[in-house]
Amino acid sequence: MAIDNITMITANFSVVVQQINEAMPLWFQQGGLIMWLLLLTSFLTTVVTLERCFVWLHYYFKKEHLPLLDCFAYLNKKEKTKALLACQRLDTPALNMLAFGINALPFSPNEKMESYAERKIHNMSRGQTLLDTVITLAPMLGILGTVLGIIHSFNILGVQGVNNPTEVVAGIAQALVSTAMGLSVALLALLPFNLFRALLQRLTLHLEGVGSEFYHICHQQRLISNELSEIMKTQELSRTNKDNEEVFKYTVQKDSEMPYHYEFKEGSDEVKVNLHEEMKELHKTSQESLAEMYTSPISKKKEYFSIDELKLQKQKETARQVQKESFRNKTR
């Protein structure tokens, strides 16, 4: 049952193809399979051309000039919210790219904007690969059809001889039709391909100009802050302060004659004061000696806190007698 259905479908398809082939002009029927391939390529070229024309016309009918000016004006005023709303008025590549950049602020928007621009340019260039392929393939198919036609004509010439050269000439003329058809299809694809490529280059330059203006405004108004550079600067400043603290601590501890050691706490005004180890020992020794002095019993034979007045009077009297004797000796 299934085999019968397949056979019936195949028979119906053959009938339809035969009817379509009979409806074609005689020169098309004589081209054979090559003409059908050229017809397919021309159909694809037409579809792609119409679709791309609709896309580009839809893009150019959108007037994005005013929203772009409003967006840049708000960015100059550092009003990112209003600038984002201005970009969302229309759905165009430039405005969408600016929206990605504004959403990325205050971080660098380069990667997001470039990534979106590349994706959009790739989408706008859709179909150009097919047109480029048709431009190369169609003439080759036409030449192939011509070669096959000439081979067929010479086969006839070889069988029938030169008695009737009119048929041979007619066969060669029919074979050249495929070459003409291939060149026509290539031209049909070449014109829109060059047009769409020029439009794509223009769009690329437009996106680059909008991106450059956006970067200029962001740097001028300081809307971009590089977090990584700020972290590196903070670390470098902290490292420098630590080095200066170590040098100052070494100077106070080793090179100074001050008996105290100062320690500064980073990020605070607290100062910790300690005695050096040598000064601790000296201070301990002095305290012990003073303690022995004040706690030891006073000897009866020695007086530490008074003077012997009798000895002092005796010394004074002795000195007076010596002076008197010396004066007497001089007067004699």
Rank of each mutant, 00 (worst) to 15 (best):
V271Q: 03
L195V: 09
D132L: 12
S299I: 07
L68G: 02
Q160Y: 06
Q323K: 08
M8K: 12
P25G: 06
E22W: 03
G142I: 07
M232A: 07
A291H: 09
L200M: 06
R126I: 10
E246R: 04
G267W: 11
E278I: 08
Y262R: 11
L44Y: 08
N76R: 15
E230W: 00
Y304C: 00
K80Y: 09
P139W: 13
F43V: 05
Q88C: 03
K314L: 06
S115C: 02
K77E: 05
A175S: 08
L137E: 15
F43I: 04
T204N: 09
V210S: 01
G161E: 02
Q235K: 09
K120D: 15
K316D: 01
T129D: 06
V273L: 11
Q253A: 15
A99E: 08
P139I: 03
M97Q: 10
D132W: 09
I9M: 08
A175N: 05
T49R: 06
V17M: 10
R239S: 13
Y294S: 09
S212V: 13
L98P: 06
F196P: 04
G101A: 13
K301P: 05
C218Q: 06
S306T: 14
N76W: 13
R52H: 04
L40A: 15
H58S: 13
Q30C: 11
I9S: 13
N110V: 13
E167I: 10
L38P: 12
I224H: 02
A104W: 03
Y260D: 14
T166N: 10
V177C: 11
M124P: 04
T136V: 03
T251G: 02
I156T: 10
Q174L: 14
F100P: 03
K112V: 09
L237Y: 13
K330C: 04
E111T: 07
N155A: 15
